[in-house]
């Protein structure tokens, strides 16, 4: 049997479905593993950056408990559950049970959307979280509730900080905070930028948030990409199952390997960013 059919209209890429005799693997599987190897180096570089910044941070200036542990834990469980449904869907296809495969992968897609929803909520929480330096020397830390442009007043829910170190190590649990109104005229003006010293907890706030948004943002992009690929195979490309089921199973396996890698990265991101 020739590797490529002689008729140009029937040319096929060799080993797209059947494994190569020398490696025992079909091309896409070698391809995805090479890609994952490069991904390991990409995330590895970011983890190294994290270590460098963490170790070199002055004593008492690396934040703790800035992220909601329970949300991070929920997202971890969601990703683990999605990894289980991915392997179950692949095993179902290997048994020829297409409907079961569709069912399991629909749960995977829902889990991916749930993960992104929780992550978006966490990001939003950081973008409405402000540190405000007042003219009387006090520091306020809290979440913006509303901003009235006519009266130049801001309503927050939060607390005044006695010592700057308290910003980096807030209590795990605290009582319900009453709304506090702060006038724009009470906010200290930065002598260099001439702007009020009121900044949200975006990636520009400090190195911890910079690496947090970089790592989780890159990870979230991977979740989006994986979700699109799994959805494409599940929906628009499902007809391949009728034409060439083995190729379809291979596609599901390759997309599954990528999804497990995304899960694997989160398993390390969760303790590093949320717990330590």
């Amino acid at each position: 049997m020739s590797l490529i059919n002689q008729n140009p209209s029937h040319m096929e890429i060799p080993y797209a479905v059947k494994p190569r005799p020398d490696t025992g693997l079909y091309n896409a599987k070698v391809g995805i593993w090479l890609f994952l190897a490069s991904e390991v180096m990409l995330f590895g570089a970011l983890f190294c950056s994290y270590i460098l910044m963490r170790v070199n941070a002055p004593e008492g200036t690396w934040p703790h408990h800035w992220l909601n542990i329970w949300m991070g834990m929920t997202n971890t469980i969601v990703l683990i559950f999605s990894s289980v449904t991915v392997v179950l869907s692949w095993a179902s296809l290997k048994m020829g049970q297409f409907k079961r495969y569709k069912f399991y992968q629909s749960i995977t897609i829902l889990c991916a959307l749930a993960f992104l929803g929780i992550k978006s909520f966490e990001y939003h929480d950081k973008f409405i979280h402000y540190q405000v330096n007042l003219k009387d020397g006090r520091i306020f830390d809290g979440h913006l509730q509303s901003a009235a442009s006519t009266t130049n007043q801001f309503v927050f829910k939060g607390r005044f900080i006695d010592k700057p170190e308290e910003l980096y190590n807030p209590p795990l649990e605290h009582a319900e905070e009453p709304p506090i109104t702060i006038a724009k005229s009470d906010i200290k003006i930065d002598p260099t930028t001439k702007q009020p010293m009121m900044e949200n907890y975006g990636p520009w706030h400090n190195t911890y948030l910079a690496i947090y948004f970089t790592m989780t943002g890159l990870h979230a992009l991977h979740v989006i990409a994986g979700c699109i690929v799994i959805f494409a195979i599940w929906g628009p490309l499902a007809k391949v199952w009728e034409q060439d089921p083995e190729r379809y199973v291979n596609r599901v396996e390759v997309s599954g390997l990528f999804w497990h890698f995304v899960d694997l990265v989160w398993i390390f991101l969760f303790p590093v960013l949320y717990l330590l």
Partner: peptide, 19 residues
């Protein structure tokens, strides 16, 4: 995850070489 979900405990030599 790597061993069971990604089947690394029973993979081909080529994958081990890459890794």
């Amino acid at each position: 995850v790597a061993g069971f979900f990604m089947h690394l405990i029973s993979e081909k030599k080529m994958i081990y070489a890459v890794l």
